[in-house]
């Protein structure tokens, strides 16, 4: 999951740093993630993991680090699987 998140950030985050080597806890906004780029990252993550971010997860904290994104996605993937059973 972490590698896919890094790839999405590399493709859509428009970061001036290498997303593939960023620390998982690095603050993505401080690294240059803009609000508009975070919209693209969100949509690309939805495509990559076949999930949809609900409105309550659309907060800055959700996308503030690779670790935070992974946490949010883990919850979504799990709840999607549970609801489809």
């Amino acid at each position: 999951m972490e590698q896919m998140i890094r790839q999405v950030l590399a493709d859509y985050g428009r970061l001036p740093v290498d997303a593939m080597t960023l620390d998982v806890d690095a603050d993505l906004y401080r690294c240059g993630l803009t609000s508009h780029a975070s919209v693209n990252v969100m949509l690309a993550l939805e495509d990559a993991f076949d999930v949809e971010f609900p409105q309550e997860l659309l907060r800055k904290k959700t996308f503030e680090s690779i670790f935070a994104i992974e946490q949010a996605l883990s919850g979504l993937v799990t709840s999607d699987r549970v609801s489809s059973v």
Binding site: R14, H36, A37, V39, N40, L43
Partner: peptide, 22 residues
Amino acid sequence: VASVAAVEASITRFGDRYLRRV
């Protein structure tokens, strides 16, 4: 400020999903 090219790229890549979300 916002980049016109970035918005254009988002429309091209995500289309209606992007437009309707924002």
